Amino acid sequence: SDIKVHVGDITVELHNVSEEFARLVEEALRLGLNEEQAKEWAHKALH
């Protein structure tokens, strides 16, 4: 599904992702990663 993740003043739109993936992206953003890094990190975490 499509999910918007908000962290501080950052909003990341995720398309066709699981809630778990979105949660991992949100966690990575909170750790200070940028959007691209957060998506990559979440992807690796799920595989």
Rank of each mutant, 00 (worst) to 15 (best):
S1E: 12
S1Y: 09
S1T: 14
S1M: 15
S1P: 11
S1V: 15
D2C: 03
D2G: 12
D2N: 15
D2F: 11
I3Q: 10
I3T: 09
I3N: 07
I3G: 05
I3C: 05
I3V: 13
I3M: 10
K4R: 14
K4Y: 03
K4T: 15
K4C: 06
K4L: 11
K4Q: 13
V5K: 06
V5A: 05
V5W: 01
V5M: 06
V5R: 04
V5C: 04
H6P: 05
H6S: 15
H6W: 01
H6C: 08
H6L: 06
V7H: 12
V7N: 06
V7M: 07
V7Q: 07
V7D: 07
V7Y: 14
V7P: 05
G8H: 08
G8K: 06
G8M: 03
G8N: 09
G8R: 03
G8A: 06
G8D: 09
D9M: 11
D9W: 02
D9L: 11
D9P: 09
D9Y: 02
D9F: 04
I10W: 06
I10C: 05
I10A: 08
I10T: 11
I10V: 14
I10L: 14
T11P: 03
T11M: 11
T11K: 09
T11F: 11
V12C: 03
V12R: 03
V12A: 06
V12W: 00
V12N: 05
V12G: 05
E13T: 13
E13Y: 02
E13H: 11
E13Q: 13
L14F: 03
L14A: 05
L14G: 05
L14H: 07
L14I: 06
H15M: 08
H15E: 08
H15D: 05
H15N: 11
H15Y: 02
H15R: 07
H15Q: 10
H15S: 10
N16P: 07
N16W: 08
N16V: 05
N16I: 04
N16E: 08
N16S: 08
N16D: 11
V17I: 08
V17Q: 06
V17S: 09
V17M: 08
V17T: 10
V17R: 05
V17K: 06
V17Y: 07
S18N: 09
S18Y: 05
S18A: 08
S18T: 15
S18C: 03
S18K: 06
S18P: 06
E19K: 11
E19V: 13
E19Y: 09
E19H: 13
E19P: 13
E19I: 13
E20Y: 10
E20L: 13
E20G: 08
E20R: 12
E20M: 13
E20H: 12
E20N: 09
F21A: 01
F21W: 07
F21Y: 14
F21V: 02
A22H: 05
A22T: 05
A22C: 03
A22E: 04
A22Y: 07
A22G: 07
A22M: 07
R23C: 05
R23G: 05
R23I: 08
R23E: 06
R23Q: 10
L24K: 08
L24I: 03
L24Q: 03
L24R: 04
L24D: 00
L24V: 02
L24N: 02
V25N: 00
V25C: 02
V25R: 01
V25E: 00
V25F: 12
V25I: 09
V25S: 00
V25D: 00
V25W: 03
V25T: 02
V25K: 02
E26K: 11
E26A: 13
E26H: 08
E26V: 10
E26N: 06
E27S: 11
E27D: 10
E27G: 04
E27L: 14
E27F: 14
E27R: 10
E27I: 14
A28L: 04
A28H: 02
A28D: 00
A28Y: 09
A28V: 01
A28C: 03
A28F: 09
A28K: 01
L29A: 02
L29P: 00
L29M: 10
L29R: 04
L29N: 01
L29G: 02
R30L: 13
R30M: 12
R30I: 10
R30Y: 09
R30K: 15
R30P: 00
R30F: 08
R30D: 03
R30V: 07
L31E: 07
L31D: 07
L31M: 15
L31N: 12
L31I: 10
L31K: 12
L31R: 14
L31Y: 09
L31W: 08
G32Y: 01
G32N: 03
G32E: 01
G32H: 02
G32R: 01
G32W: 00
L33W: 07
L33C: 05
L33E: 01
L33V: 02
N34K: 05
N34F: 03
N34C: 02
N34W: 02
N34H: 03
N34D: 14
N34T: 15
E35T: 12
E35K: 08
E35A: 13
E35M: 11
E35N: 03
E35F: 13
E35G: 10
E35P: 10
E35W: 09
E35S: 10
E35Q: 08
E36L: 10
E36I: 10
E36Y: 10
E36H: 12
E36K: 12
E36A: 04
E36C: 09
Q37F: 03
Q37H: 06
Q37V: 02
Q37S: 07
Q37P: 01
Q37A: 13
Q37L: 09
Q37W: 03
Q37K: 08
A38Q: 00
A38L: 01
K39T: 04
K39R: 14
K39C: 04
K39F: 13
E40Q: 12
E40G: 03
E40T: 04
E40K: 11
E40Y: 09
E40V: 08
E40F: 06
E40P: 00
W41T: 10
W41S: 13
W41D: 05
W41E: 11
W41L: 12
A42C: 02
A42Y: 01
A42F: 01
A42M: 01
A42N: 00
A42K: 00
A42L: 02
H43I: 10
H43N: 10
H43M: 11
H43Q: 12
H43F: 11
H43L: 12
K44S: 14
K44R: 12
K44G: 11
K44M: 12
K44Q: 15
K44A: 15
A45S: 12
A45I: 15
A45P: 00
A45T: 12
A45V: 15
A45D: 02
A45K: 14
A45R: 12
A45E: 14
L46N: 03
L46E: 04
L46H: 04
L46Y: 09
H47A: 13
H47R: 10
H47P: 04
